[in-house]
Amino acid sequence: MYYNQLTYLLRVTNSCFLNCSYCMVKDQLTHDRINDTPSDLAPHSLVETMFDKAIGFGEVYLTFVGGEPMMAGKEWFRKTFEIMKSKAEQRCISVSSRIYTNGLLLDDEWVEMFKENGCQIFISWDGLGFGKKGSQKAYEIITRYAKQITTVTPVISKANCHAIKDIYKQLNEAGVKRMTCQYDIYASTEQMIEFGNATCELFRHIESEPLECKTRFLIYHDAKAMALGTGRLSSNEMSAAVLNNDYVINPDGEIILGLPQDEDERFRLGSIYSIGHINDVLFSAKMKWLNDCYVKAQRLIGNYERTNMLTRGGGFFFDKKQIQDMDKPFMAKLACYHVILSYFLNRGAK
């Protein structure tokens, strides 16, 4: 075992001022107004504890999620960044951070603070006219801060899958550096195949107009890298499964694996306040069971066998809670991946 890299996903708050139907944590959200201060903010003592329980690791990655994490306010983040800097110096470690946000609260002061503290900005936006995260206001904010935003991620659903090429064109015109996407985890197999086909249409567009398409579409590059067997994956959608040393921390300090359906006892690993070190959960019976499930999910045979091996179980494991058995590949998403990878595999990935 290497004490190298640890990733925490800190759920800053369960509060959000949007109500997206596909949200992975919709059952746990509190819906407040945009300027409300959430009542369940993660205390700064929790941030300190997270670092204290990670002693020995060389790198700690802290990802801010929600709810809408920016509802915590600027002062909460300033204090958090101070703690991170102090702990990095104290523990002689490298600390990195990113935030996943709908971006509607972003302004010059926020952007400057994130820049000063090396916090990457990931915006979730679904394309003009598509739901609460497809507003003109959000698009104007994305355009204004395109150079400072790390990546924009639309959630591809039944509503907007036919427009994925248009969404890309909008972000390309806005000057966004990178686009990836997440496929709606609640979609059926048939819908996932439709998502895959729509994604391949975008691939063809990118290849047909390489000089015009300046926004890097990470799914395209990841799928091609998988098909070639070379290259480094850069999109969260198609990156290899991470089961160990990648934990969600709720505002009350509870440790869970993954965001969806976290009320499931199988994925609740206790409180970070009550353990001696974060690796204590790594050797628990629950984690042993989970790793056994992961191994079993690799043993698929049939038409999707190669795709399953390339994608390490077709999206295993975070997206599968109460959707499909844990010891099997995520078949719906695997169907989408199969379409996407076949785009390159069928032509020798040239």
Rank of each mutant, 00 (worst) to 15 (best):
Q5A: 09
Q5D: 15
Q5K: 15
L6V: 13
Y8V: 12
Y8F: 13
L10N: 11
T13R: 15
F17E: 10
D32L: 15
D36V: 13
L46Q: 01
V47D: 00
D52M: 00
G58N: 10
V60Y: 03
A72H: 02
F77S: 03
F81I: 02
I83R: 03
M84T: 07
S86T: 05
Q90A: 12
S94P: 11
V95R: 05
V95F: 10
S97Y: 08
W110I: 07
F114W: 15
C119G: 09
F130P: 00
G134N: 07
A138T: 08
V152C: 06
K158A: 15
A159V: 05
A159H: 02
C161R: 06
I167V: 11
K169L: 07
G175V: 12
V176W: 05
T180W: 01
T180A: 08
E190R: 11
Q191D: 11
M192N: 15
A198M: 09
H205R: 02
H205C: 04
H205V: 00
E212L: 07
L218F: 03
I219K: 04
A225I: 13
A227G: 14
L228W: 13
G231C: 12
S234E: 11
S239W: 13
N244F: 13
V248T: 11
D252C: 10
D264H: 14
A285K: 12
C293N: 04
A297H: 09
R299P: 06
R306F: 14
T311M: 09
F316E: 07
K321I: 05
D325K: 09
F330R: 04
G348W: 00
